[in-house]
Design a protein around this nucleic acid. Structure first.
Lengths: 208, 208
DNA sequence: ACGAGGAGTGAACGATCGTTAACCCGGGCC
DNA sequence: GGCCCGGGTTAACGATCGTTCACTCCTCGT
């Protein structure tokens, strides 16, 4: 229960939020339990009142983000028109990546630090999410081989997940996130469009 | 002196190669000094005969890769025709990323584990490399704002650096590194082409 | 022939970290 | 009022890790 939207986040949620931020900045092993405690105002082993351990904390972060990505992807990939489904997948993913860059960083950096069992869970969720993209992509370009479609999907993820590494803050800071989102969206759609056989790359970009 | 191409790599080079592989797989803090020693046949503190410490090892890896990227980029970005320069940058970078995926992983994952001084060095080299791309991109699309060009460059890096996360090995059909390289190259060129403000025969995509 | 020094070894040290233990405090609930 | 228990504290334990030390061995140059 994510504290039902209102206000006054649970201590548990504070810890999760702070962990995401610190793990993203310093890496899982670069943050100690007392660092996490200090960042929420308590100190040290108080964490163990809310989580069974440090790895469990990481596991909850990664499983949660994977499930949210998969759920959001499922809601979009089902669209009747494959082209619309694909653009909605792009919009969803770019929104997620610009909205929660820390989670993106943690997921692609600290997966290896998970114990076996939660790591397998996360991997399975991620793979299913990728397959969502692969299937949608092959619905619009049926001639693409599955392996190639997977390469394309991973490439687009890398493109969209590049937000965290973006320049810190340009002078005109306000339209920043929006402009970035738009640019990344257009790049992703263009990249997705060159999936098919070499001759037909420059087809029109479907846009809704 | 990287042991002059012949054969029989120096112990020092063995250690560097093994470190790249293990750091890429388990992360900097996930690999111990004795792990590294064991992986090259010696054990434990023998490393200190070749490097002043573990962080120095990481520093040498990251500085070396940054310098090689920058040197290769400089050699291509100078081409008289901006379009040719850009495609050569793409070819160079995709070759690097598919050729040495471990170094790519380490560079984008473990930069934060460097001490201040080498980290600043790496950051400076990386920034210069990005500016190479930004300048070239703006030579072919002069109407792009610098900030937007940086976003585009980072996005293309993310796209090209997605090779390490690619599907492990497709069964039966073997879309080798060559096929992957071709796909990524085409995606990158397509993504780079949508940098400008909807000009040049490309239809405008309504922004949000 | 022989000394010097590069390269390796196992043992020991100090620091840090994750985790556990023992104790404490405040507020609902009968 | 007595009690319990969620949530917090400090102190201590055990393990790991990076690093240093003292010592050995092999090889080369003079």
């Amino acid at each position: 229960m994510p504290s039902s939207e209102g206000a006054a986040p649970t201590r548990r949620e504070q810890i999760l939020a702070v962990s995401a931020r610190l793990f993203a900045r310093h890496g899982f092993h670069g943050v100690s339990i007392s660092d996490l405690g200090a960042a929420v105002g308590v100190s040290g082993p108080a964490l163990y009142r809310h989580f069974p351990g440090k790895e469990a904390l990481l596991a909850e972060l990664l499983i949660d983000i994977s499930e949210r990505l998969l759920a959001g992807g499922r809601a979009r990939a089902g669209h009747a028109d494959p082209r619309t489904a694909l653009t909605e997948l792009v919009d969803f993913h770019v929104g997620f990546a610009t909205g929660e860059p820390e989670l993106i960083v943690v997921q692609e950096r600290d997966l290896a630090n998970l114990p076996d069992e939660p790591r397998r869970t996360v991997r399975r969720l991620q793979r299913t999410y990728v397959e969502l993209w692969v299937d949608t992509l092959r619905r619009v370009h049926p001639e693409i081989a599955p392996g190639e479609a997977r390469t394309v999907a991973h490439g687009v993820f890398g493109l969209l997940n590049s937000t965290p590494y973006a320049p810190p803050a340009a002078p005109g800071s306000d339209p920043d996130a929006d402009a970035r989102t738009t640019v990344l969206r257009r790049m992703a759609l263009a990249a997705l469009n060159v999936g098919g056989p070499a001759g037909r790359g420059m087809e029109r970009i479907a846009d809704g």
